[in-house]
Structures are given as structure tokens and as C-alpha cells.
Design a protein around this nucleic acid. Structure first.
Length: 528
RNA sequence: GCUCCCAUCGUCUAGUCAGGCCCAGGACGCCAGGUUUUCAUCCUGGUAACAGGGGUUCGAAUCCCCUUGGGAGUACCA
């Protein structure tokens, strides 16, 4: 046991080893390892989130590693996008390309020299071999197999008839390599055995090695494939738990076999269920967002090649804590009826055991509801400050104190700050027109005279605050014998232009006596 | 095709591991009613699910098997 662990403790040495003796539980170390091939979509964000929650819950470390071993798929700006998105979500790293750390560098292209020796090691130990088949040749074999309704697999059945160091004499292999013939290194999958894997979420999974193929570990371009780089780095970086999407489950046997071939202790695995499209079935994709009108990315992204813009949650007005809260509950639940969680509460409550096995369809409606919940719980001062920028956009100058009076009256009516204008425009400008349907319903023959009389009442109110306004109007209505509904709806039409909005007394108190009277006069002339 | 994974209201899910407390609970959505000077909020109520079939058991959403359905993977991509 101690021997096994000490193998994983390098290079921290003796002091670290001592703490290990006091505390036999190894440190929890997880990583989020995206490939910078484009913007991170919400499924990826959720994976990062679960890793983060798990690490923090166990007092461990969260590591960001960039897996850019495919040069052909590199997208400029993607790496920065990923980092900024996660920072916006409140997901922070203890080690990574920005933070540095004891296992730097954290970008695989910067570690490229490292991987060749591990590839060599596997060849020497008989767990891997050189292969000289060209991509075209393999493509041809796949096509032929497909035509015969078969699947071509590079494995124990076929490897003996292909061009590799298993079939070609050693001397010739050496000369081929020396002669710069392109080659790859393939993993030699053991024959006739079973790989037994224990996944934290899925339990035990067993597969026969015959169904696996001899995956390429090292490419002809001198870079490792995901499989090799991933295992080497997870080992070197002392990752204790690999938490990743279910799309990786099919390659888990290979990974387990690789750890075994290296003689390394494998981390624990947890394969997360997928995020599915809201309608129909299948993995959530960028296209679904476009089609159904909701963002699939945390932040807006502009494709550097096409210039095409994809919308993001941040730019759409979502709060990061609401977004994170929604994502956390998509596939995980606390087993209680609590739905609103701060990041700190999520950390406390999170466990991989409570992550479901089945995929979750993404629900844009509930996402809005989460934002609504967070919005109504924000301080009025903050909402006022945010809303002022939207008001300014309309070339209306206002002051924070004025907006602050309005916010508590309307915040429960919206899910986004940007939607506040629709609920508050009449606080900033007089009605430009009057809703014809409301006019038809509320504007009777006697209404103009009533409104004229009411204007006189309003003029005499002092101080012009909600309580006094309400009281005066109530008394006047009772004394004159008019209907409350008839008067108030007509008055609302004059002040707001339609039949919506908060309590009229509040509206008048905020826009002031002068403005209220002015709107009544204007309306009296305009409505026929 | 092959390999692997999955299966409770329209959606997110509780309940499944330790079978009875479940003719299945909560939330979103939707519908109705109530409060209100309007709209909205809010409150109350309603809608709606154990994929199907076999077993095991006194008893199954829960355990086992089969079927069906869905998903993922199947690259010198990650």
C-alpha cells in the first residue's frame, strides 16, 4: 500500500510523505481538461462545475489542463474563452495554465517532449507496437468491412495481417523508422480477457478485450493522442478522480488497460450523463440553441473563421449564480426539496452518488425561472444600477435615487433586468399612444368630465405621496358615487397608456403631481 | 451492424442500493379559482408518470430475465 502510494507522491518528497502517513487518505485532485476547439458549451460547463464542487467538497484541488494534441483542430481564442467562461461562473482553479502549479506546464502541447518516452516504455514492455498502415489503407479496410456489414477493428483478429512491428521483422522495422516512414504507436490490447471497471456513477462495467481495438497512442505527427496524453498526465498530476462526460465511457476499458500496462494505480472514474436537447432526443448541440432560441454557450462566441456569432447566457442577461444553480440541478439533486443553492451550499450538498445515470433534457423555461428567482432576491440598489444602463441606452437621463424607487414595484414581474423597461417606461416618459382596446373598454361618455374633476382633486393633494393620493381619491370616489374600477382604469389609461403597471398611487407619487396632471390634460385632448 | 450505457408526470426529478410508510412526493410549464383599481406578482386547487411482458415474493416503481425504446462510442478528434 505504502509502496503503491509513494509511487504517486513524487516529486513532493519526504515532507509530503510524512503528512501522508498521518493522513492515509490521498488528496482529492480533479481536473477539467477541455480541448480548445471552440467555445465550451453548457454540458462542458456542467462537467467543470461538478469537478469543482467535488474538489471543494473534499478540500481538494481543481486543475485546468488544456488538451490540445490535435493541431488541426486548434481554434484561436477558444482557450481564453474557456477560462473566461468558467471564471464568470465562479469556477476557479488551483492549478492550471494561468495559475501554474507543481506539475506545470498544464498545456499538453507544451508537454509534447514528455509523451514519447512513455510511448517507448509501452513498446519495450510489449504493451504497444509500431504500425505503418497509412490512413488511406485503413480507410479502405473500413469501407470494405462496411460493405460486408462488418466493422473493421484493428485488434487481435486483424493485426497479424497488417503492416506493423508484430508482422514485420525487427530489422526492417528499424530501417523503416530510420528511413522516416510515417508510423504510429498502437496499444496492444490483451487477448481473451475481461476488463473490469468500477464507475462511481454506473457501478461495475465489464467488457471483453476482443471487442476493443488497438487504439493509436502516438500519432505520426509526433504528438500523442488523447488516450496516451490523458493517462500520462492524470498520473503525473496525481489526479484522484476523473469526472467526465458519458461520451468517454466507451474508451474507459482502454484507459484502465493503459494504467495497468504502465503499472500505475488508476484514479477513480465517474462518467456523467449527457445533456440532451429539449425536444426529441440526442445530445444537446449548438444547432439546437439556434433552432429553439436559447443560448447553449455560457458567453457569446464569435467564430474566428466565419464571423458567426453564437449567443451566450452572460450576454442574454442571466446571472452567473442562477446559471450555475440551474446547471447543478441538471443531472444532480440533493435529495431534499431545496432548489435554490449558492455555490457554497452546492459545495456542501454535492456528491457524485446523487448524480443520476440517465441523460437530462435541457429546459430553457426552467432556466428563466431560476434567473427570476435570483433577480427578485438581488438588492434593489444593484438592480437599479444595472437598469440605469438600459435606460441610458434610450437617451433618457435619470438618477439612481429615482430608479431605486421604481425597482421594488416591478422586480417581481420580470426574469431579466433588460425586461424592466417594458414594465417601467411610463415612469420615464408620457404615453405616446393609448391602447385602443382599453380605450374602447374604459373610456365612456362621462369619463372626460370625471377625469377633469379628478385632476382638481389631485392638484389639491399635499404632500403628494402614495398614502395621501390613495386616501384623497378614495374619498372623492365615495363622495361622488362613481365606481372605483371605472375611475381608476380610465386614470391609468391617461397616465400609462394601457391597462398595466403597479399601483397607481405609487406611479403618481413617483412621477410627481405636475407630470400626472400634465398627462391627464394631454390624454383628455388625445382620446376621443 | 457491433460494443457499452440508460428508462418514474410534457420537462427537471424524489422514491430504487437496504421490497411494504407510494392507487407514487416536489419543482418548471400549463389550466382553473381567489386576492387586486389594471396587468403582473402572490395564494389555493387541478392536470399529468412507474415503457411492455414474464418471473421471485404474503407484498415490486424498487430484485431477476426478456422485449421495446432512447443515447453514446465505433478516427493518426477530443
Amino acid at each position: 500500500m505504502i509502496h503503491k502510494q509513494s509511487q504517486r507522491l513524487n516529486p513532493w518528497g519526504f515532507a509530503y510523505l510524512c503528512t501522508k502517513f498521518r493522513d492515509p487518505m490521498p488528496e482529492t485532485r480533479v481536473r477539467f481538461a477541455p480541448s480548445p476547439t471552440g467555445p465550451l458549451h453548457i454540458g462542458g460547463v456542467r462537467t467543470a462545475l461538478y469537478n469543482y464542487l467535488f474538489a471543494k467538497k473534499h478540500g481538494g484541488k481543481m486543475i485546468l489542463r488544456i488538451e490540445d494534441t490535435d493541431q488541426t483542430r486548434f481554434v484561436p481564442g477558444a482557450e481564453a474563452y474557456i477560462i473566461e467562461s468558467l471564471a464568470w461562473c465562479g469556477i476557479h482553479f488551483d492549478e492550471g495554465i494561468s495559475e501554474g502549479g507543481p506539475h506545470a506546464p498544464y498545456r499538453q502541447s507544451d508537454r509534447r517532449l514528455l509523451y514519447a518516452q512513455y510511448s517507448e516504455q509501452l513498446i519495450k514492455s510489449g504493451n504497444a507496437y509500431y504500425a505503418f498502415d497509412t490512413p488511406d489503407e485503413l480507410e479502405q479496410l473500413r469501407k470494405e468491412a462496411e460493405a460486408g456489414k462488418q466493422t473493421f477493428i484493428y485488434n487481435s483478429l486483424s493485426r497479424k495481417s497488417l503492416r506493423n512491428s508484430l508482422t514485420i521483422p525487427a530489422a526492417e522495422v528499424e530501417s523503416l523508422i530510420a528511413g522516416e516512414t510515417p508510423y504510429v504507436v498502437r496499444f496492444l490490447v490483451p487477448e481473451n480477457s475481461e476488463v473490469v471497471m468500477d464507475d462511481i456513477i454506473r457501478g461495475r462495467v465489464v467488457v471483453k478485450t476482443e471487442t476493443l481495438d488497438d487504439k493509436v497512442l502516438y500519432k505520426s505527427d509526433g504528438l500523442p493522442t488523447y488516450h496516451l496524453a490523458n493517462i500520462v498526465d492524470d498520473h503525473l498530476m496525481e489526479i484522484s478522480h476523473v469526472i467526465r462526460g458519458e461520451e468517454w465511457l466507451p474508451s474507459l476499458p482502454l484507459h484502465v488497460l493503459l494504467y495497468k500496462a504502465f503499472g500505475w494505480e488508476a484514479p477513480q472514474f465517474a462518467h456523467l450523463p449527457l445533456l440532451l436537447k429539449p425536444d426529441g432526443n440526442g445530445k444537446l448541440s449548438k444547432r439546437d440553441g439556434d433552432r429553439l432560441g436559447f443560448p447553449v454557450f455560457p458567453m457569446q462566441w464569435q467564430d474566428p473563421k466565419t464571423g458567426e456569432i453564437s449567443s451566450g447566457y452572460r450576454e442574454s442577461g442571466y446571472y452567473p449564480d442562477a446559471f450555475v444553480n440551474m446547471l447543478a440541478l441538471l443531472g444532480w439533486n440533493p435529495g431534499t426539496e431545496q432548489e435554490i443553492f449558492s455555490m457554497e451550499e452546492l459545495i456542501q450538498a454535492f456528491s457524485l452518488e446523487r448524480v443520476g445515470k440517465a441523460g437530462s433534457k435541457f429546459d430553457p423555461e426552467k432556466t428563466k425561472w431560476f434567473n427570476h428567482q435570483y433577480l427578485i432576491n438581488k438588492a434593489n440598489e444593484q438592480l437599479a444600477a444595472e437598469f440605469i444602463t438600459f435606460v441610458s441606452l434610450r437617451n433618457i437621463s435619470t438618477d439612481p435615487a429615482y430608479v431605486l424607487k421604481i425597482i421594488p414595484l416591478v422586480k417581481e414581474r420580470v426574469s431579466f433586468v433588460k425586461d424592466l423597461w417594458e414594465e417601467t417606461f411610463f415612469f420615464f416618459e408620457a404615453p405616446q399612444s393609448y391602447d385602443v382596446q382599453v380605450v374602447q373598454k374604459r373610456w365612456k361618455q362621462e369619463t372626460p368630465a370625471q377625469m377633469t374633476a379628478l385632476a382638481l382633486v389631485l392638484e389639491s393633494i399635499e404632500p403628494f405621496d402614495t398614502a395621501h393620493i390613495d386616501e384623497a381619491i378614495k374619498q372623492w370616489i365615495e363622495a361622488s358615487g362613481f365606481g372605483m374600477g371605472a375611475i381608476m382604469n380610465a386614470l391609468r389609461l391617461l397616465l400609462v397608456g394601457t391597462s398595466k403597471g403597479p399601483h397607481l398611487g405609487d406611479i403618481m407619487a413617483i412621477i410627481g403631481k405636475q407630470e400626472s396632471l400634465k398627462r391627464i390634460q394631454t390624454g383628455l385632448h388625445a382620446i376621443k
